Computed example of a mutant assay.
Amino acid sequence: MKQVGEARDGAESLCPPIDLVGEPDWQPFDAPALVGASLRFVSGEPDGNRYRVRYYRDAHQQLQARVWFGPETEGPPGHAHGGSMAAVMDEVLGLAAWAAGHAIVVGNLNVSFRTLLPLETVVTVESAVVSAQGRKVLVEGRIRQGDTVYVEAQCLCITLPDQSPASRQDAR
Rank of each mutant, 00 (worst) to 15 (best):
M1A: 14
Q3C: 11
E6H: 09
A7S: 15
R8W: 12
D9P: 12
A11D: 11
E12A: 15
E12G: 14
P16F: 06
P17M: 07
L20P: 05
E23K: 12
E23Q: 13
D25F: 01
D25L: 11
D25E: 14
D25A: 14
W26T: 02
Q27P: 06
P28H: 11
P28D: 14
F29Q: 00
D30Q: 05
P32A: 07
A33S: 14
L34I: 08
L34H: 04
S38N: 14
S38V: 15
S38Y: 15
L39I: 15
R40W: 15
S43H: 08
S43I: 03
E45N: 15
P46M: 04
D47H: 13
G48D: 07
N49H: 09
R52L: 00
R54Y: 00
Y56I: 02
D58N: 13
A59D: 08
Q61N: 12
Q62L: 01
L63V: 06
Q64L: 02
Q64W: 00
A65H: 02
A65T: 02
F69W: 08
F69A: 10
P71M: 06
P71W: 01
E72P: 09
T73M: 06
T73C: 10
A80F: 06
A80L: 10
H81T: 04
H81N: 14
G82W: 09
G82Y: 11
G82F: 11
G83M: 00
G83K: 05
S84I: 00
M85H: 03
A86I: 02
A87T: 11
E91F: 05
L93I: 03
L93P: 04
G94V: 07
A96L: 01
A96C: 03
W98I: 01
W98E: 02
A100W: 09
A100E: 12
G101T: 08
H102D: 02
H102N: 09
A103S: 09
G107H: 01
L109H: 01
L109F: 03
L109P: 03
N110I: 11
V111W: 10
V111P: 10
L116V: 07
L117F: 04
L117W: 03
L117G: 06
L119G: 00
E120N: 12
V122G: 10
V123K: 01
V123P: 01
V123H: 03
V123T: 08
T124K: 13
V125L: 11
V125N: 07
S127V: 06
S127I: 08
V129T: 08
S131A: 15
S131Y: 07
R135L: 10
V137E: 08
V137G: 13
V137M: 13
E140W: 10
E140P: 02
R142C: 12
R142E: 13
I143C: 10
I143P: 06
Q145M: 09
Q145N: 09
G146H: 09
G146C: 07
D147P: 13
T148P: 07
T148R: 11
Y150D: 04
V151N: 00
L156I: 08
C157N: 14
C157I: 05
C157V: 06
C157H: 07
L160Q: 09
D162K: 04
Q163W: 08
S164Q: 13
S164D: 12
A166I: 15
D170I: 12
D170W: 12
R172N: 14
